[in-house]
Write a protein that binds this DNA or RNA. Structure first.
Lengths: 183, 183
DNA sequence: CTAAACTTTCAGAAATTACTGAAAGTTTAG
DNA sequence: CTAAACTTTCAGTAATTTCTGAAAGTTTAG
């Protein structure tokens, strides 16, 4: 399994971007390789292609499985396991979003809720709690909305995007459109 | 400047979350402190409150300014500089999004465009380029849409959120609503 | 101008994170 | 059952990132 220059460039780039996307270099490279290579790959092939140790490969694959970005694929008659992407690009992107939400937003929302329950210690703390509340609500809006986008699916997202600034106008009309809605 | 237990908890948490949000612990702590503390703070006060070196504080402040999350605030009659948040929570959140887009998405989009221009090296590369194209388009949709959300502002985002699943329905009606739109 | 008050820079130290490879573990063929 | 083929784990090492504090730089008062 030798990577073409095209694949090599992409894999290297996804490696460099890896840490920005929530995983490390190796994990990024492995993901790119599996996604771009249509045939299922064995752990050994991956280690060879990327020139990394077999141990590191094992850890990377485990991580990618925990993110639900790849899954095992059993080839009849073969002893070793092979790996393939866990879905379409859209599915993978959603999984990354989802996982990052869990790591980057949820713990903060949870803490903010707790701190808002605490009895404030003086004047200043009341102002602080108001701020924390503001942050909490913002995060809530954003996550709720990104959930919504995920439910829409890729085609509708595309329609929505093409609509562009029209969204603002539509919002102003929404009451006429959906009078039955309770909010 | 002694932090109340409430502020301390929040600051510590934002520190821990810092690296997940694209900056390091200290930078996260400094940001939280400045945002939660209504009065402008001097670099020395920040260093003292967080028990970090003056040098580290200076670097952190510089970083936050480059993200446009804080700005200097001159107090007449005072020699030293003070720091305040660069805007409302909404503004700050947008800046973080924006900056992360620049770091996490833009370089990838750019590389993908380049790789799509390359002349493919055999059958397989053609399939690979198709995949890369798919990834590119998805990223494009997502970023274009998040831009849109930013332009809407917080109130409209709220309306949109409350609309929830209604968005799907509205989309189906959009042609009746906006017949003049060319797309 | 000089001195004081302040800020920034940056080399090295400390802390954190990632990687290797050998050893231990697991599965299946026979 | 045993041996071969494979995978995982993890202690130690390497690489990277963050932090300190001393030295150099800047600004302003007088």
């Amino acid at each position: 399994m030798k990577m073409s220059p095209l694949v090599t460039s992409a894999v290297m780039h996804f490696g460099e971007m890896g840490n920005r996307w929530g995983f490390n270099r190796t994990v990024g490279q492995i993901l790119a390789l599996i996604v771009l290579h249509e045939e299922p790959l064995s752990a050994q092939e991956i280690a060879d292609a990327l020139s990394i140790s077999r141990g590191n490969t094992s850890m990377g694959l485990k991580e990618l499985q925990s993110w639900q970005l790849i899954r095992q694929h059993h080839v009849p008659g073969e002893r070793k396991e092979f790996f393939v992407p866990a879905g379409t690009i859209w599915v993978l992107a959603n999984r990354v979003f989802e996982e990052r939400r869990k790591r980057e937003i949820d713990p903060t929302m949870s803490l903010l809720r707790d701190l808002m329950m605490d009895t404030p210690n003086g004047e200043k703390d009341i102002a602080v709690q108001a701020r924390l509340n503001e942050i909490h609500d913002l995060l809530e809006s954003v996550t709720a909305w990104s959930q919504e986008l995920q439910n829409l699916g890729p085609e509708k997202l595309d329609t929505l995007m093409k609509l562009g600034a029209g969204v603002g106008r539509i919002l102003e009309l929404k009451d006429k459109l959906l009078p039955a809605k309770s909010n």
